[in-house]
């Protein structure tokens, strides 16, 4: 559905040039729900804007929904839906006018646009808002209407730019269900950008992690977590931390053992199985533990291991 090779974008301004996207390769199959993950400034939005025909790439090639992005942008436009982060709606229009007109922009005739509007409003639980001004909708309602705007021409491929930013937890969860339904019930391909790890984890079949303008990791959330070398074990000891570290190092399968004051950290493939062995070995050396925790790797760990940063750190300009 999407095939991108060597996509780059350079911005030239008064203060020099910025390579926002440095060479992105990516593939998305039909029917996939792919999350595009990266910190602010990583090139996420720039890539998305290029794939949706809003920004001309500096170099590279891309086929989107079966059409060539550079030679047939109109072909791409007819086949994709795009819901921008900033919204899509003018406040001084009634809901149905915006939606019907959007249908007409995509070539539906008046009658078809009207029936499509009724259909979509029903589908997104907005029917009772048909005549209301956009300005009077709640954030969650407006977001659903944004999505309806992107679906009006039944695209094969839907791009969502940070779809749940600014929504309360209940609306977020409800929106996740709707996005899942688009894929499960209609076989739509969904490509969404996010900087929420829980969203990526809960929603997406596959994640693409972008950092510094290149894709640094790709895989299902589970695959990515497995690629981080095992569970994180953190122990606090009353005394003998150095010795405890040596003991831990000696046990089969442990790695990345570090000692920091009274705290010993290490990684091990199966934390639940390694723990009894570790505790026995420590007791043999008369080392007393104050506490111990085992943590399954999270996407944040994945992110940290591929970029060396936490997802929510800003990229230094």
């Amino acid at each position: 559905m999407i095939r991108v090779r060597g996509l780059t974008r350079r911005f030239t301004g008064k203060h020099g040039t910025v390579d926002a996207v440095r060479g992105v390769d990516l593939d998305v199959e039909a029917g996939e729900l792919v999350g595009f993950l990266g910190p602010n400034g990583a090139g996420k939005t720039t890539t998305l804007r290029m794939l949706t025909t809003l920004l001309r790439p500096t170099s590279g090639e891309a086929r989107v929904a079966g059409r060539d992005l550079l030679t047939d942008p109109d072909g791409v436009r007819e086949r994709i839906g795009y819901v921008a982060q900033s919204g899509t709606l003018a406040f001084d229009y009634p809901v149905h006018e915006e939606l019907e007109m959007q249908g007409r922009f995509y070539g539906l005739d008046r009658a078809r646009a009207r029936s499509r509007c009724t259909e979509l409003l029903a589908e997104l639980d907005l029917s009772e808002l048909h005549d209301r001004l956009v300005a009077t909708l709640s954030g969650g309602q407006r977001r659903r209407l944004d999505i309806a705007m992107g679906l009006v021409h039944s695209p094969e491929l839907l791009f969502l730019d940070e779809p749940t930013t600014g929504l309360d937890p209940t609306s977020r969860a409800a929106l996740w269900d709707r996005i899942r339904a688009l894929r499960d019930e209609r076989g739509m391909t969904v490509f969404l950008s996010t900087h929420y790890l829980d969203e990526a984890d809960a929603l997406c079949d596959r994640l693409l992690v972008i950092d510094n303008g290149v894709i640094v990791a790709s895989g299902s959330p589970d695959e990515l977590k497995r690629s981080v070398s095992g569970d994180a074990v953190t122990m606090t000891v009353h005394s003998g931390a150095i010795e405890a570290g040596q003991v831990a190092d000696g046990i089969d399968g442990t790695s990345e053992v570090t000692v920091d004051g009274e705290v010993v950290r290490l990684r091990v493939r199966r934390g639940d199985e390694a723990l009894p062995v570790l505790l026995n070995a420590l007791r043999d050396k008369d080392i007393e533990l104050a506490s111990v925790t085992v943590k399954r790797p999270t996407l944040d760990d994945v992110f940290h291991s591929v970029t060396g940063r936490s997802l929510h750190e800003e990229v230094a300009a």
Partner: peptide, 16 residues
Amino acid sequence: FEHRSGVIERMRVTPL
């Protein structure tokens, strides 16, 4: 005004 509300961009993604 319409750029702020995202309307300009939304219309640019249509095949108009």
